[in-house]
Design a binder for these strands. Sequence first.
DNA 1: CTGTTAGCGCTTTCAC
DNA 2: GTGAAAGCGCTAACAG
Lengths: 337, 337
Amino acid sequence: MPEKAPTIKEIARLLGISPSAVSRALHDHPSIGAKTRKRVQELAIELNYIPNQTALYFKEGKTKTVGVVLPYLGEEFFSKAISSMEDVALNNGYTVLMGQSRDNMERERLVISAMTKHRVDGLIVSVAKDTHDFAYFEDLRHYHIPLVFFDRIPPMNGISFVRCNLKKGAEDAVNLLISRGHTRIGLLNGPGVLTASLERQEGYNTALESHQLKPDKELIKCSSLDSASTELAVKELLAVKDRPTAIIIFNDYVALDAIQYIKNRNLVINKDITIVSFANISMNHYLNDSPIASVEQFPGKQGEKAMELLFELLNNKNRDQPLQYIVNSRLVLHEKI
Amino acid sequence: MPEKAPTIKEIARLLGISPSAVSRALHDHPSIGAKTRKRVQELAIELNYIPNQTALYFKEGKTKTVGVVLPYLGEEFFSKAISSMEDVALNNGYTVLMGQSRDNMERERLVISAMTKHRVDGLIVSVAKDTHDFAYFEDLRHYHIPLVFFDRIPPMNGISFVRCNLKKGAEDAVNLLISRGHTRIGLLNGPGVLTASLERQEGYNTALESHQLKPDKELIKCSSLDSASTELAVKELLAVKDRPTAIIIFNDYVALDAIQYIKNRNLVINKDITIVSFANISMNHYLNDSPIASVEQFPGKQGEKAMELLFELLNNKNRDQPLQYIVNSRLVLHEKI
DNA sequence: CTGTTAGCGCTTTCAC
DNA sequence: GTGAAAGCGCTAACAG
C-alpha cells in the first residue's frame, strides 16, 4: 500500500521520468516513446491512478459538476426529478452537487453560495416557497454560472426554465368532467400565492367558458394544503346549494384528505362526487377510492429537460440567450374497467 | 458588470495592492492596515466575492464535499435517507455529491470513480444489488477516502457501516402475531441473496423457536419482488394444507401486490389472512386493506447516523478504526381503532 | 522523443 | 504593514 495518493508526480518519481512525460503517456500523446507509454500506463493501473478534477479545473476552467437545489428531496415529485437529472448529468460526464432549501430563503441562499464556492459549472433551482428576494440569482452572473429554473419559476426576466403546463391539465380535467355530463364542477385549489394555483384557476375558467358555462365563485375554494384546511374547504363546497357533482382537487395528497372527509359524510366517491386531481402519484393504483383521473406532471421528464437545457447553455457561446421549455401535462384516467 | 469572476487577484488589481494583502484583509489578519482592510472588505462585498473552494483544496487538502451513492433516489427509503444526510453535511459546512448506481455494478464503479476524481473527503455507499466484486471499495484507501456503508452492507472486514436491525423487527412481527393467537405464520421473503432477507429469516426462526413453535419450510416462500413472482409465492402459501392465518411480508410494496392477490381469492385481509410487513410507508394510512403492522426502518435516522459516522472518521486521527451503528427497527401498529 | 517551466486561486513564509 | 515567492496537480508551450 503506497503512502501517498497516486499523482502524476508520484508516477514520474517512481519511474524516474518527468511529470509531463507521464501526462503525455496517459493521454496517448503522439510524441512519447512506446516503451515509456506502456510503463506509465501499467503503473497507473496498478496504483489505481485517477486524475484530480480539482487540479484539472485550473486548466480547463470546468469543475464538471452541476448544482441542483430543490425544496425537499423527500417529496416524490422532486426525488424523481433529481433522479433523472443525475442520469443526464452522468451521461455528459458530470456529477451532481445537491442541496435542499427546505422552502427557506436563507437556506436556499446558503446552499447556492456553497455551490458557487465549489464553482459548479451550472445550476438548476426550484425556488423556495418563501423566497422574495432574487438578488442572489443575479449574483451568479458574476461567476458565469448558467442557471435553469425548474418547476417553481421566480418572476424574473430573461431566465431559462422548465415547467409544466398546468393550465392545460386543468382544462383537460374540466373537459373530461363535462363530457361525463357534469355541469356543477368545484375547484378545490391550493394557496392563491402559488403560480401553480393560478394556472389551475385559469385552465378551469377557460374550459368552462369554452362550454358556455359560467364559473361560479361559490364553487372555488382554497386549501392551505393541511388536512384541517382541506376539510373546511370541502365542507363549504358540499354546503353550496345545488352542490357540485364533481370536484377538481389541487393534487392527490390533498385529494386523500378530501376523499376521507367526503366518505365520512356518507357520500359515494365518483358516484355522488366525482374527483379529478393532479400529480398522478403511484399510490392511486392501490386505493379503493381514488380520483377517476389525475394530471401527470412528469417530474422525470421535466428534470431531464432541465438538465438538457443546462448543458445547452454550457455549450453555447451565447449564454445570455435564455432557453425555456414547457412540458405538457397529461390527464391520466384511473378507472378500473 | 465586471467581466472577470471575482478573485483575490482581481480585487488586488482594482485596489492596486498585492493579492497577499487582500487575503490577509479578508481573514482579519492582525498585520494589515485598518484602511486597507476596510477597502478590501467593502470591495469584496460589492463584487460578491466568494472564495474558490477548488483553489482552497490545494492548501487545506479538503474539497469539503462528501459523496453519497445509492441505488435509486426515486425510492422513498433512499430519498428520505439522502435528505437527512444532506442536512448533517450542511451543518458541517459540507456539500453532497450524489450518484445513483441503479443497482448496477458497472454504474456504481463509474460513479465512485467520478467521486474519487472529484476527491470527495468521504463517501457513503449503499451497495448495488448485483455488486459481487468489491475491489473498488478497497481502492478508495489509496486516496484516503473514508467510507461508510449504508443499509446494504457488503461482506467485507473492518468496514464502517450503519444499518437497521431487521432481525429484531422480524421477531417483533412474529411475537405480535403469536400474541394474537396465530400459530401458522407464513413468511413471504425477498431474494435469498439479500442480507435483508436473511435477517428476516433469522428473526422469524428465533421468535418461533422461543415460543416452542417449529418453523415449517412450507410456510416460507421467496419473491423476486415483482408482482408476478409475489403472486406465485402467495399462491403457494395459500395452497399449503393447514394454511397460514398470517403472513409476514418482505416489505409494504410487496404487500400491496400480495394483498391484491389475496383479495382476488375472496379472502378477507386481516381476518382470514393477517398481514404484517416492513418499511412502514406513509401510503398505508390511506389504504383500506393494509398490514396491521409494519416495521419502521427509519431511513432518515439511519442517513443521519451514517453521515455523523463519516464525520467522525474524517475528524479522527485513526481512520482505520471502523465505526458501526445499528438502528433499531420498530414495529408500528396500523389498526384503525 | 523528453525535460523544463509557467500558471490556474489561494495561503503562508520570508523579506523588506 | 506590505510585497514577493513557493507550492498544491495538472497541462501545454517551449527548449533541447
